[in-house]
Amino acid sequence: MEKYDCIVIGAGPAGLSATLTLGRARRKVTIFDNGTNRNRVTQESHGFLTREGIKPQEFKNIAMKELKSYPSVSISNETVIEVNKDDQNDLFLIKSSNNKTYITEKILLATGIQEEFPLTQIRQYYGKSLFSCPYCDGWELRDKPLAIIAENDEHIIHMTKLVFNWSKDLIVFTNGHQLFNKVRNDFESKKIKVYTDVIEDLHGDNGNLESIELESGDNILRSGGFVVPSFYRPNKFAEQLNCQFDKNGGIITDGAGRTTANGIYIAGETEKAESSSLIIASADGNKAASSINMDITLDRF
């Protein structure tokens, strides 16, 4: 059975960037990709120098092609279903959905996060006319009549104030959540209307939002907007590998990708279970890979 220097679990920008750095460092590495990248529903990616407006799948295809230039790098189109520590040999055993077992010295967790929305209908519009990141998609929605859909006071205030930079034509939908009077007054002073009714349905065509129907019967015209989802890690690998967490649920690291569990590293959105940008996640991957390579170097020199 082959032994790898490092196995990268997750082929988002963090995992891809880390694998490239490790390949260039002549490390034997395989990256697992099961095609569940969170940005796969997005039509364009923004904020990454030289790749402005690129489709996420094209970005990924380019990265995969670059990885194939390095003979010590391999790509596994499988899902990791189990990770175990072989304490006797100080190695890790990884089992895939194809019932294969891989042995590795180091593991980089870059499996990212996934969204949960307050309304199931949001999925139909997410990535086309409803988004979660104004820095990523605010420019494309500038000056349009937009909706802010959120259910938590802190999230509502933060997102509304932020999006106001791109469009002054905003309406807040709290889906049954009551806002403090001061918040409502602050919004109304900026001519931002607030609907606290439960949302009955979203209407539109081919992912393009046209209106929001409320339980009260009102149907409010909107052509796009921003939502505040909750995020979760799609697996329990960090827990199973005894990584320590902070009080907010973030995985504790040294700031350079090393977790508190020896041999386990983290990069990208997985660390804090919070959304990030393409360019920041890629930088995280590069940083974690540098730590992995240095640790392997010191172990073997």
Rank of each mutant, 00 (worst) to 15 (best):
N185F: 14
D153I: 04
F237M: 08
I212E: 14
T160F: 04
E58C: 00
I103D: 15
P229E: 00
A289L: 09
S223I: 01
A63K: 05
L67V: 03
I171P: 02
E269M: 04
A283L: 12
L146V: 07
Q178M: 10
Q88N: 15
D295E: 15
E2K: 11
G224H: 01
A238G: 11
T111R: 00
A18E: 09
V80R: 01
S132R: 04
G112T: 05
S211F: 14
V194G: 06
F245L: 04
G250D: 01
R233Y: 02
M159V: 00
S276L: 11
L209W: 00
Y102H: 12
L119P: 09
G224E: 03
A283I: 07
Y265A: 03
Q114H: 12
E66Y: 01
S45A: 03
P118K: 03
S167C: 05
Y126E: 02
A281N: 14
L170F: 08
V183E: 03
I212W: 15
N39P: 08
I156A: 04
C133I: 03
T260P: 08
E188L: 13
R38N: 13
T196E: 15
L16D: 02
A25D: 15
L214Y: 06
N84A: 08
R123N: 11
L214Q: 12
L108E: 11
Y265S: 03
N39W: 01
K28L: 14
T101V: 14
N293Y: 10
K65Y: 02
L241G: 10
E210R: 13
